[in-house]
Amino acid sequence: MTTIDRTVPGLGRTKFSRRTKSNIKWGLLFCSPAIAGLLIFTAYPVIRTIQASFTSATMLTPGRFLGFDNYADLFTDAMFWRSLGNTVYILAWSVPLGIVVAMGLALLLNLNVHGRSIYRVLFFVPSIVPLVATAVVWYYVFSPQYGIVNSMLGLVGITGPSWLTDPAWAKPALIIIAVWGVGNLMVIMLAGVQDVPVELYEQAKIDGAGVLSRFRHVTLPFMSPHLLFALVTGLIAGFQYFTEVFVITSGDGRPAGSTMVAGLYLYQNLFAFFKVGYASAFALVLFILSATCAVIVFRTVGRRVYYGGS
């Protein structure tokens, strides 16, 4: 009588050799500092933030359990909606403009011109300047009295605005500052442009394609992974926008709350009002918003990305 083997493949107990066990042990040992750091400095704060968001905790007291009261108060807070609106406004302008500027610079710096290495360094330097120093420099650049921007506008007979002291011009000034520091994104775009196969450009020229046609049908498809990366990271960074506006406005969102972004309002609730529970709920809402935007981008734009050879 033939015996039938009823063992389901893949469900049996996996047996590791002595060498494999040794590799796993040593691998975990060498990774233990990173694992410990992730648990202590990332996982634990996230868990504590979630826990605190349901309490009335302050800097000095653990508080009592409130349920979803912090979230209810957050969604009825007019300043929360204003800070979120300011954040979305800056993000909606700075991210696309930053991508366009970085892409344009990458295309220009890919040309075979004399001294292009110097130009690449000059355009990259702003991205490595500390954010606090950047904010201080731009504060003086946008000065209504002696700032270089209004001085240059005055040379052509234009009276410059008050910029950082005018509610109508404060956010455009912050957008200009954000676009100014796209040097790191420019380097990524430049690497993507240089990866486009040269033979495709040559074939397109033979077929009679012009400059714009070659850019649309050759450059953009190969650059789409880099553009997706720039879009997703720009959205995430936009919801965390804080340092420049904090330094320039002394942390109060002046003038008239026009620069009160979400990160700054979160900072005020935590370190000025000591409302740990409320600030924790705010932080979780921002995280959910940024994660949702990233998922939407991947589900929509991500499907149109072309990966060479796939």
Results as ranks from 00 to 15, higher is better:
Leu227Phe: 11
Leu270Tyr: 10
Phe215His: 14
Ile236Val: 15
Tyr265Ser: 02
Ala168Ile: 06
Phe246His: 09
Asn269Val: 04
Tyr201Cys: 11
Gly263Asp: 10
Leu174Thr: 01
Ala178Val: 00
Phe273Gly: 00
Leu212Gly: 13
Ala170Trp: 01
Leu264Thr: 05
Asp166Thr: 07
Ala191His: 13
Leu231Gly: 01
Gly183Leu: 03
Phe274Lys: 02
Ala209Lys: 06
Met260Thr: 08
Trp163Thr: 00
Gly154Ala: 13
Gly154His: 03
Leu200Cys: 03
Met260Gly: 03
Gly234Arg: 06
Tyr267His: 13
Leu220Asp: 04
Phe273Val: 08
Tyr201Ser: 11
Asp207Lys: 03
Leu266Cys: 10
Met189Cys: 13
Ile158Val: 15
Pro225Arg: 03
Val179Lys: 08
Asp252Tyr: 12
Gly181Phe: 02
Ser213Cys: 08
Ala230Thr: 04
Ala272Lys: 13
Val198Gly: 14
Leu155Lys: 12
Leu231Ala: 12
Arg214Met: 13
Leu228Gly: 09
Ala272Thr: 15
His226Asp: 06
Ser162Trp: 03
Gln194Lys: 08
Val261Gln: 04
Ala272Met: 10
Asp252Phe: 10
Ile177Met: 15
Ser224Val: 03
Ala272Asp: 13
Pro225Tyr: 04
Met186Ala: 07
Phe274Val: 01
Val193Ser: 05
Pro255Asn: 08
Ala170Arg: 00
Ser250Lys: 12
Gly210Gln: 06
Pro255Arg: 03
Pro255Phe: 05
Ala209Met: 10
Asp252Asn: 15
Met152His: 04
Thr259Ile: 01
His226Asn: 13
Asp207Thr: 07
Thr233Asp: 00
Ser258Gly: 06
Leu190His: 02
Met223Ile: 05
Val247Phe: 11
Thr159Cys: 02
Leu185His: 00
Phe274Leu: 05
Gly208Lys: 05
Leu164Ile: 10
Pro197Tyr: 08
Ala230Gln: 05
Ile177Trp: 03
Leu270Met: 14
Lys205Val: 07
Ala272Val: 14
Glu244Pro: 06
Ile248Val: 15
Ile236Leu: 11
Gly263Asn: 09
Glu202His: 11
Ala237Arg: 15
Thr259Cys: 04
Lys205Ser: 14
Ile177Cys: 08
Thr243Arg: 01
Ala272Asn: 14
Val187Phe: 05
Pro172Ile: 04
Thr249Ile: 03
Val179Arg: 09
Lys275His: 13
Thr165Met: 08
Tyr267Glu: 07
Asp195Ala: 15
Ala178Asp: 13
Phe246Asp: 07
Gln203Ala: 15
Arg214Tyr: 05
Phe222Met: 04
Leu228His: 09
Val156Lys: 14
Val245Phe: 05
Val179Tyr: 09
Gln203Pro: 02
Asp166Gln: 06
Val211Phe: 15
